[in-house]
Simulated assay, not measured.
Amino acid sequence: MQILIAGASGFLGQRLIPHLRAAGHQVTPLVRRPPRPGEVRWDPTSGVLDGTVVAAADAVINLAGAGVGEKRWTAQYKKVLVDSRVDTTRTLARAIAAAPVKPKVLLNSSAVGYYGDTGDRAVDETSPAGEGFLADLCKVWEAATHPAEDAGTRVALLRTGLPLDPDGGLLKPLYLQFKLFAGGRMGSGRQYLPWISVPDWLAAITFVLDRELSGPVNLTGPEPVTNAEFSAALGEVMHRPNLLPVPGFALRAAVGEFGGEALASQRVLPAVLVREGFPFAHRTVREALQQAVSSIT
Protein backbone atom coordinates (compact mmCIF):
# COMPACT_ATOMS: atom_id res chain seq x y z
CA MET A 1 0.00 0.00 0.00
CA GLN A 2 0.91 3.64 -0.47
CA ILE A 3 0.39 5.09 3.01
CA LEU A 4 0.31 8.77 3.97
CA ILE A 5 1.00 9.35 7.66
CA ALA A 6 0.60 12.41 9.87
CA GLY A 7 2.22 12.54 13.29
CA ALA A 8 5.20 10.57 12.05
CA SER A 9 7.65 12.25 14.45
CA GLY A 10 5.72 11.33 17.58
CA PHE A 11 6.41 8.55 20.06
CA LEU A 12 4.22 6.02 18.25
CA GLY A 13 4.75 7.39 14.75
CA GLN A 14 8.50 6.81 14.96
CA ARG A 15 7.81 3.15 15.70
CA LEU A 16 5.01 2.72 13.20
CA ILE A 17 6.88 3.85 10.08
CA PRO A 18 9.61 1.17 10.19
CA HIS A 19 6.96 -1.40 11.15
CA LEU A 20 4.89 -0.56 8.05
CA ARG A 21 7.91 -0.46 5.77
CA ALA A 22 9.07 -3.84 7.06
CA ALA A 23 5.63 -5.16 6.06
CA GLY A 24 6.24 -3.97 2.49
CA HIS A 25 4.25 -0.72 2.50
CA GLN A 26 5.42 2.56 0.95
CA VAL A 27 5.14 5.26 3.62
CA THR A 28 5.13 9.02 3.05
CA PRO A 29 5.30 11.18 6.19
CA LEU A 30 3.58 14.56 6.29
CA VAL A 31 5.78 17.21 7.94
CA ARG A 32 5.50 20.90 8.78
CA ARG A 33 9.21 21.66 8.45
CA PRO A 34 11.09 21.71 5.12
CA PRO A 35 10.66 18.16 3.79
CA ARG A 36 13.43 15.64 3.30
CA PRO A 37 13.35 13.25 0.33
CA GLY A 38 10.29 11.02 0.61
CA GLU A 39 8.37 13.49 2.80
CA VAL A 40 5.60 15.97 1.98
CA ARG A 41 5.11 19.35 3.61
CA TRP A 42 1.68 20.45 4.80
CA ASP A 43 0.12 23.10 7.04
CA PRO A 44 -2.90 21.69 8.89
CA THR A 45 -3.39 24.92 10.83
CA SER A 46 -4.22 26.64 7.54
CA GLY A 47 -5.81 23.57 6.00
CA VAL A 48 -3.11 23.31 3.31
CA LEU A 49 -2.38 19.87 1.84
CA ASP A 50 -1.51 18.95 -1.76
CA GLY A 51 -4.54 17.02 -3.03
CA THR A 52 -2.45 15.03 -5.52
CA VAL A 53 -0.56 13.48 -2.60
CA VAL A 54 -3.82 12.34 -1.03
CA ALA A 55 -5.15 10.98 -4.33
CA ALA A 56 -2.00 8.87 -4.73
CA ALA A 57 -2.45 7.20 -1.33
CA ASP A 58 -4.22 3.92 -0.66
CA ALA A 59 -4.45 4.69 3.06
CA VAL A 60 -4.03 7.63 5.41
CA ILE A 61 -2.99 7.26 9.06
CA ASN A 62 -3.33 10.24 11.37
CA LEU A 63 -1.47 10.14 14.70
CA ALA A 64 -0.98 13.89 15.06
CA GLY A 65 -1.63 15.72 18.33
CA ALA A 66 0.21 17.58 21.10
CA GLY A 67 1.23 15.50 24.11
CA VAL A 68 -1.55 15.24 26.70
CA GLY A 69 0.77 14.92 29.69
CA GLU A 70 3.59 17.20 28.57
CA LYS A 71 2.38 20.46 30.17
CA ARG A 72 -0.06 21.74 32.75
CA TRP A 73 -3.57 22.10 31.37
CA THR A 74 -3.88 25.85 31.23
CA ALA A 75 -6.70 27.22 29.10
CA GLN A 76 -4.11 28.00 26.43
CA TYR A 77 -2.64 24.50 26.40
CA LYS A 78 -6.06 22.86 26.37
CA LYS A 79 -6.73 24.81 23.18
CA VAL A 80 -3.45 23.46 21.77
CA LEU A 81 -4.52 19.91 22.63
CA VAL A 82 -7.81 20.36 20.80
CA ASP A 83 -6.55 22.32 17.79
CA SER A 84 -3.56 20.04 17.17
CA ARG A 85 -5.95 17.12 16.78
CA VAL A 86 -9.00 18.67 15.16
CA ASP A 87 -7.10 20.82 12.64
CA THR A 88 -5.03 17.89 11.38
CA THR A 89 -8.02 15.54 11.21
CA ARG A 90 -10.25 18.09 9.50
CA THR A 91 -7.55 18.94 6.92
CA LEU A 92 -7.00 15.27 6.08
CA ALA A 93 -10.71 14.41 5.98
CA ARG A 94 -11.54 17.34 3.71
CA ALA A 95 -8.61 16.56 1.42
CA ILE A 96 -9.79 12.95 1.15
CA ALA A 97 -13.32 14.09 0.38
CA ALA A 98 -12.04 16.43 -2.35
CA ALA A 99 -9.64 13.97 -3.97
CA PRO A 100 -10.66 12.68 -7.42
CA VAL A 101 -9.35 9.25 -6.40
CA LYS A 102 -9.90 8.68 -2.70
CA PRO A 103 -7.82 6.61 -0.31
CA LYS A 104 -9.60 3.42 0.68
CA VAL A 105 -9.16 3.95 4.40
CA LEU A 106 -8.41 6.57 7.04
CA LEU A 107 -7.10 5.32 10.37
CA ASN A 108 -7.50 8.23 12.76
CA SER A 109 -6.17 8.42 16.27
CA SER A 110 -8.51 8.83 19.18
CA ALA A 111 -8.18 7.74 22.80
CA VAL A 112 -9.88 5.74 25.52
CA GLY A 113 -10.44 9.11 27.18
CA TYR A 114 -13.64 9.05 25.10
CA TYR A 115 -15.28 6.92 27.80
CA GLY A 116 -14.47 9.22 30.72
CA ASP A 117 -14.17 7.74 34.21
CA THR A 118 -15.87 4.33 34.09
CA GLY A 119 -15.07 3.21 37.64
CA ASP A 120 -15.35 -0.58 37.90
CA ARG A 121 -17.73 -0.73 34.92
CA ALA A 122 -16.27 -2.41 31.84
CA VAL A 123 -16.84 -0.56 28.55
CA ASP A 124 -16.27 -1.40 24.91
CA GLU A 125 -16.80 0.24 21.51
CA THR A 126 -20.58 0.17 21.92
CA SER A 127 -20.45 2.26 25.11
CA PRO A 128 -21.40 5.95 25.08
CA ALA A 129 -19.05 8.86 25.57
CA GLY A 130 -18.23 9.90 29.10
CA GLU A 131 -17.73 13.31 30.67
CA GLY A 132 -14.72 15.54 31.18
CA PHE A 133 -12.21 17.41 29.05
CA LEU A 134 -10.67 14.34 27.40
CA ALA A 135 -14.07 12.83 26.59
CA ASP A 136 -15.18 16.11 25.00
CA LEU A 137 -11.90 16.34 23.10
CA CYS A 138 -12.30 12.83 21.70
CA LYS A 139 -15.84 13.57 20.53
CA VAL A 140 -14.86 16.60 18.45
CA TRP A 141 -11.70 14.84 17.28
CA GLU A 142 -13.63 11.87 15.95
CA ALA A 143 -16.35 14.07 14.46
CA ALA A 144 -13.72 15.82 12.34
CA THR A 145 -13.35 12.62 10.27
CA HIS A 146 -16.93 12.86 8.94
CA PRO A 147 -16.08 14.47 5.54
CA ALA A 148 -13.93 11.44 4.65
CA GLU A 149 -16.55 8.98 5.84
CA ASP A 150 -19.33 10.83 4.02
CA ALA A 151 -17.23 10.67 0.84
CA GLY A 152 -17.10 6.88 1.02
CA THR A 153 -13.69 6.27 2.60
CA ARG A 154 -13.60 3.66 5.34
CA VAL A 155 -12.78 5.36 8.65
CA ALA A 156 -11.49 3.54 11.73
CA LEU A 157 -11.20 5.45 14.99
CA LEU A 158 -8.22 4.17 16.97
CA ARG A 159 -9.15 4.61 20.63
CA THR A 160 -5.70 3.94 22.02
CA GLY A 161 -5.04 3.11 25.65
CA LEU A 162 -1.64 3.40 27.35
CA PRO A 163 1.14 1.93 25.17
CA LEU A 164 3.85 0.56 27.45
CA ASP A 165 7.34 1.71 26.58
CA PRO A 166 10.05 3.17 28.87
CA ASP A 167 10.74 5.92 26.31
CA GLY A 168 7.28 7.46 26.35
CA GLY A 169 3.78 7.61 27.73
CA LEU A 170 2.82 6.60 31.26
CA LEU A 171 5.63 4.09 31.70
CA LYS A 172 8.46 6.59 31.15
CA PRO A 173 8.15 8.42 34.51
CA LEU A 174 7.08 5.25 36.35
CA TYR A 175 10.08 3.33 35.05
CA LEU A 176 12.42 5.98 36.43
CA GLN A 177 10.64 6.02 39.79
CA PHE A 178 10.87 2.26 40.19
CA LYS A 179 14.47 2.25 38.99
CA LEU A 180 15.28 4.67 41.81
CA PHE A 181 13.44 2.45 44.34
CA ALA A 182 10.71 5.09 44.64
CA GLY A 183 7.84 3.33 42.88
CA GLY A 184 4.29 2.70 44.01
CA ARG A 185 0.66 3.01 43.07
CA MET A 186 -1.01 6.31 42.16
CA GLY A 187 -3.82 7.51 44.38
CA SER A 188 -6.03 4.75 45.77
CA GLY A 189 -4.70 2.23 43.25
CA ARG A 190 -8.23 1.02 42.54
CA GLN A 191 -8.56 2.82 39.21
CA TYR A 192 -8.26 0.69 36.06
CA LEU A 193 -5.52 1.30 33.49
CA PRO A 194 -6.21 0.45 29.82
CA TRP A 195 -2.69 -0.67 28.86
CA ILE A 196 -1.37 -2.21 25.62
CA SER A 197 2.10 -3.39 24.60
CA VAL A 198 3.74 -1.42 21.81
CA PRO A 199 4.24 -4.55 19.64
CA ASP A 200 0.53 -5.31 19.98
CA TRP A 201 -0.36 -1.70 19.16
CA LEU A 202 1.75 -1.85 16.00
CA ALA A 203 0.28 -5.20 15.00
CA ALA A 204 -3.24 -3.89 15.65
CA ILE A 205 -2.65 -0.98 13.25
CA THR A 206 -1.81 -3.33 10.39
CA PHE A 207 -4.65 -5.63 11.46
CA VAL A 208 -7.19 -2.80 11.16
CA LEU A 209 -5.55 -1.54 7.99
CA ASP A 210 -5.88 -4.90 6.26
CA ARG A 211 -9.46 -5.69 7.31
CA GLU A 212 -12.78 -4.04 6.59
CA LEU A 213 -13.09 -2.60 10.08
CA SER A 214 -14.67 0.81 10.53
CA GLY A 215 -15.87 2.93 13.42
CA PRO A 216 -14.27 2.83 16.86
CA VAL A 217 -11.64 0.21 17.66
CA ASN A 218 -10.21 0.05 21.19
CA LEU A 219 -6.45 -0.52 21.08
CA THR A 220 -5.99 -1.92 24.58
CA GLY A 221 -4.85 -5.17 26.12
CA PRO A 222 -7.49 -7.85 26.72
CA GLU A 223 -7.09 -7.86 30.51
CA PRO A 224 -7.28 -4.36 32.08
CA VAL A 225 -5.83 -4.13 35.58
CA THR A 226 -6.05 -1.71 38.47
CA ASN A 227 -3.25 0.73 39.11
CA ALA A 228 -2.27 -1.24 42.21
CA GLU A 229 -2.00 -4.43 40.14
CA PHE A 230 -0.05 -2.56 37.46
CA SER A 231 2.40 -1.16 40.02
CA ALA A 232 2.88 -4.57 41.62
CA ALA A 233 3.60 -6.13 38.22
CA LEU A 234 6.08 -3.38 37.32
CA GLY A 235 7.89 -3.80 40.64
CA GLU A 236 8.08 -7.54 40.08
CA VAL A 237 9.39 -7.20 36.53
CA MET A 238 12.00 -4.59 37.55
CA HIS A 239 12.89 -6.35 40.82
CA ARG A 240 12.09 -3.23 42.78
CA PRO A 241 9.86 -2.59 45.80
CA ASN A 242 6.35 -1.23 45.34
CA LEU A 243 6.15 0.79 48.54
CA LEU A 244 5.84 4.53 47.89
CA PRO A 245 2.36 5.47 46.64
CA VAL A 246 1.74 8.90 45.12
CA PRO A 247 -1.27 10.42 46.93
CA GLY A 248 -3.98 11.76 44.67
CA PHE A 249 -3.79 15.26 46.16
CA ALA A 250 -0.04 15.38 45.49
CA LEU A 251 -0.52 14.36 41.86
CA ARG A 252 -3.20 17.01 41.37
CA ALA A 253 -1.00 19.64 43.00
CA ALA A 254 1.94 18.71 40.78
CA VAL A 255 0.23 18.62 37.39
CA GLY A 256 -3.16 20.25 37.92
CA GLU A 257 -6.25 19.08 36.05
CA PHE A 258 -4.32 16.38 34.20
CA GLY A 259 -3.65 14.76 37.56
CA GLY A 260 -7.39 14.28 38.05
CA GLU A 261 -7.69 12.66 34.61
CA ALA A 262 -4.68 10.46 35.35
CA LEU A 263 -6.50 9.13 38.42
CA ALA A 264 -9.64 8.28 36.43
CA SER A 265 -10.59 4.62 36.14
CA GLN A 266 -11.00 3.27 32.60
CA ARG A 267 -11.87 -0.42 32.38
CA VAL A 268 -11.78 -0.53 28.59
CA LEU A 269 -12.09 -3.79 26.66
CA PRO A 270 -10.91 -4.32 23.04
CA ALA A 271 -14.15 -6.02 21.96
CA VAL A 272 -13.66 -5.43 18.22
CA LEU A 273 -10.13 -6.86 18.17
CA VAL A 274 -11.23 -9.86 20.23
CA ARG A 275 -14.27 -10.45 18.00
CA GLU A 276 -12.10 -10.31 14.88
CA GLY A 277 -9.55 -12.76 16.28
CA PHE A 278 -6.61 -10.40 16.75
CA PRO A 279 -3.66 -12.45 18.06
CA PHE A 280 -2.42 -10.56 21.11
CA ALA A 281 1.26 -11.27 21.75
CA HIS A 282 0.98 -9.91 25.30
CA ARG A 283 -2.31 -10.79 26.92
CA THR A 284 -1.35 -9.83 30.49
CA VAL A 285 0.13 -6.65 31.85
CA ARG A 286 3.08 -8.58 33.25
CA GLU A 287 3.91 -9.92 29.78
CA ALA A 288 3.63 -6.42 28.32
CA LEU A 289 5.82 -4.90 31.03
CA GLN A 290 8.38 -7.67 30.70
CA GLN A 291 8.61 -6.96 26.97
CA ALA A 292 8.91 -3.20 27.53
CA VAL A 293 11.58 -3.44 30.22
CA SER A 294 13.59 -6.10 28.38
CA SER A 295 13.70 -3.87 25.29
CA ILE A 296 16.19 -1.55 27.02
CA THR A 297 18.04 -3.91 29.32
Results as ranks from 00 to 15, higher is better:
P166G: 05
G184E: 02
F249M: 10
A228N: 02
V208Q: 06
L164P: 12
A228C: 06
R267D: 00
A203D: 15
R211P: 09
P199W: 05
D200W: 07
R211G: 12
P224H: 03
A264P: 04
P173R: 08
G189L: 04
D210V: 05
Y175T: 15
G187K: 09
A204Q: 14
Y175C: 07
F230M: 14
D167Q: 15
W201E: 15
G260W: 03
A264L: 10
G168H: 07
G183M: 07
R159W: 11
P199D: 07
A281V: 09
E212A: 15
G215I: 08
W201A: 15
L170H: 01
G248E: 05
D200K: 03
T160H: 00
E229K: 07
R211L: 13
W195I: 06
V268S: 03
A262I: 15
G161S: 10
S231L: 00
L202F: 08
P216M: 06
K172S: 14
G260E: 14
P199F: 03
S265W: 12
R283P: 04
P224C: 09
G260Y: 05
V246Q: 12
P270Y: 14
V237S: 08
L243V: 06
L209I: 00
L263V: 11
L243K: 01
S231V: 00
R190V: 01
Y192S: 04
L234M: 08
V155N: 15
G235N: 10
P216V: 12
R283C: 00
I205S: 04
L213P: 06
N242K: 06
F178D: 04
V155I: 08
M186I: 10
R267A: 00
S197G: 13
P163W: 10
F280E: 06
L243F: 10
H282C: 07
R275P: 06
R190Y: 00
Q266G: 04
P194C: 03
V255W: 01
F249E: 09
V237N: 05
P279G: 03
P166S: 05
A281M: 11
A182N: 09
E261M: 05
T160V: 13
M238A: 01
P270D: 13
A156P: 08
E223T: 06
D210S: 15
V246A: 14
L251M: 13
T160G: 04
D165N: 12
A233R: 03
I196R: 01
P247I: 09
F258V: 09
L164G: 09
L269N: 01
S214V: 06
S265H: 13
V237I: 11
P270Q: 14
G184F: 01
R185P: 02
D165K: 02
W195G: 05
L158A: 14
D167G: 15
A232E: 15
A262H: 10
K179F: 15
L158P: 10
K172D: 07
T206M: 02
